[in-house]
């Protein structure tokens, strides 16, 4: 088993928290991992990324080799494009749909989303909506980890002690809120994955999932949704 991930986002979006969750999940499972990140200059609102490698065998390089990433997990839709050369054929993109516009030449929103939906395996999620549903609007990271979970060698239960450790001192409701966001993100991710597995395009999967009530999403809905007339 190996899982090579490129985490992407913009400085300040907290991708290092995502890395922290995944690192600890890997260690708790007795898996090996390496996680290379950038600090300093680029954290001031610039493009930031992290290479995260998880495996049950020796990991040699800290950097994911170009063309070998199994997943790009991005908190920002435009940033996905920067790292596509790393994504292996058949790899999956899990991305937030909400743009972060801090540059003057940010392309049209529709163009950015359209470009993502054209990728063969893209899971597009509205992280803000999912985070808000758990009453922790800042926990967009958690929503992204949840959405990526169906493609990772972890389960929801793996994150309970880690989330407890991260937010325990802020109170039980914060822990519960974050777990709710993880769970909801996971449901969206799992349903989208099931749709993609049934041959539905990324674009259509996004259309089908984005109209649903977050509280009722269930991967078992995939057959029914995939059969829906367009």
């Amino acid at each position: 088993m190996k899982c090579d991930i490129i985490l992407a986002g913009v400085g300040g979006q907290g991708i290092l928290t995502i890395a922290y969750l995944l690192d600890n999940a890997a260690v708790n499972r007795g898996l090996r991992f390496k996680q290379a990140e950038v600090h300093g200059m680029s954290q001031r609102g610039g493009a930031v990324y992290s290479h995260l490698r998880i495996s049950d065998a020796e990991i040699i390089s800290d950097l994911v080799p170009e063309g070998q990433a199994d997943m790009i997990l991005s908190v920002e839709p435009l940033e996905v494009q920067r790292y596509l050369p790393y994504l292996r054929p058949g790899g999956v993109v899990v991305s937030n749909v909400e743009p972060f516009k801090n540059i003057p030449d940010y392309p049209d929103d529709a163009l950015v989303l359209d470009a993502l939906a054209r990728l063969p395996r893209a899971v597009l999620v509205d992280a803000a909506a999912i985070a808000t549903s758990g009453k922790v609007p800042k926990a967009q990271n958690m929503a992204m980890v949840g959405a990526a979970l169906p493609f990772l060698p972890f389960t929801l239960a793996d994150f309970e002690p880690i989330v407890q450790g991260l937010f325990g001192r802020k109170g039980d409701h914060v822990v519960a809120g974050n777990m709710h966001v993880l769970r909801t993100g996971n449901a969206v991710g799992a349903l989208t994955a099931a749709l993609l597995d049934r041959g539905v395009t990324s674009q259509r999967a996004h259309q089908l999932t984005s109209g649903l009530d977050l509280a009722s999403i269930d991967p078992a809905m995939a057959d029914e949704l995939a059969a829906q007339p367009r």
């Binding site: 913009v10 609102g45 610039g46 493009a47 170009e66 063309g67 435009l78 940033e79 494009q81 920067r82 596509l84 050369p85 790393y86 994504l87 292996r88 054929p89 790899g91 801090n102 540059i103 030449d105 940010y106 392309p107 163009l111 950015v112 470009a115 993502l116 054209r118 990728l119």
Partner: peptide, 13 residues
């Protein structure tokens, strides 16, 4: 063998 970018103009950040 990576994946091709699907957006024509990718601005720097």
């Amino acid at each position: 063998q990576g994946t091709a970018q699907t957006l024509e103009h990718l601005p720097g950040r």
